[in-house]
Design a protein around this nucleic acid. Structure first.
Length: 267
DNA sequence: ATGTCGCCCATTGGGCGA
């Protein structure tokens, strides 16, 4: 079985590329982030044509997460328990479409689009830290209930957990950039402490290996990227992993997403 | 270079988010 995660940065703008990739990648499950559409604008036909069931959660032009599967799509859940809300004013805080789950071929898959943070001192950063904290507590509780649970927490984590996960850590520190701060890294590592493992890095070691390259400033041709898209697996699922890859090719050419797909192979 | 994208509302540009 093959499971993939991909921040497509608008599904409608990239429908042809996503369909072509899905057709040739031979994945059984694809978790998608940043569909950037509401359910009523979602391209359901694209997945139907290729034989995938799909569930989507999108409430505005922002965020949007989906799971496509050809090995079953059961017990779909939109948002996790206690998922924090966000709004510029407290009065308009809403539940954003950043998390959707489904059981696919016996694996509980969560497609996650972690809040960006925007700036180390922006309220969005506290939202990001809280969001990750509540999700971690939930994920830990699932393992406490069933230590043998096969759970995949996949998506755009918007955290670069190690210095080698950005092209120039000195620059990021000078600029007090997001994604590399101590609280963000601690929030990410808490998942590892709870028993979840990054199952991709062992097969795609750095430095210089990334999943995202900004559109600006020729970041991709300059090989200046960030590793921020991860598949974190519970112990029972991690034990099944036989390989993983980052499809850097898909970042090339006109009309590419700024993120590459990440694929995990299971025995 | 504040260097690129994609969305929306609106209307050939501005605002927002990443």
């Amino acid at each position: 079985m093959r499971i993939a995660t991909w921040n497509v940065n608008s599904l409608r703008a990239r429908a042809d590329r996503v369909e072509a990739w899905l057709d040739r990648s031979d994945v059984d499950v694809l978790a998608i982030q940043e569909t950037k559409c509401k359910d009523e604008n979602f391209p359901w036909d694209l997945f139907e044509r290729l034989g995938y069931d799909v569930a989507h959660f999108g409430v505005s032009q922002w965020n949007g997460v989906a799971i496509a599967s050809r090995v079953g799509l059961e017990d779909v859940e939109r948002t996790f328990e206690g998922q924090p809300t966000f709004g510029k004013e407290e009065a308009d805080a809403v539940q954003e479409s950043r998390a959707i789950a489904a059981t696919c071929g016996g694996v509980r898959v969560w497609s996650l689009y972690v809040p960006n943070g925007r700036d180390r001192n922006d309220p969005h950063m506290q939202y990001k830290i809280d969001w990750l904290g509540v999700l971690k507590d939930q994920a830990a509780s699932w393992l406490a209930t069933d230590p043998d649970a096969q759970v995949a927490l996949v998506g755009d984590w918007n955290v670069a957990p190690r210095d080698e996960d950005v092209w120039d850590i000195d620059l990021f520190e000078r600029e007090q950039a997001t994604h590399v701060s101590a609280p963000e890294r601690a929030a990410f590592h808490a998942f590892e402490e709870a028993g979840f493992a990054d199952v991709v890095r062992p097969y795609t070691p750095g430095p210089g290996v990334y999943t995202y390259w900004d559109y600006k400033q020729l970041r991709f041709p300059r090989r200046e990227g960030m590793r921020i898209d991860f598949v974190l697996a519970s112990p029972a699922l991690a034990a099944r992993v036989t390989g993983a890859s980052i499809d850097r090719q898909e970042r090339k050419g006109k009309g590419a997403s700024d993120h590459a797909p990440v694929v995990v192979e299971l025995a």
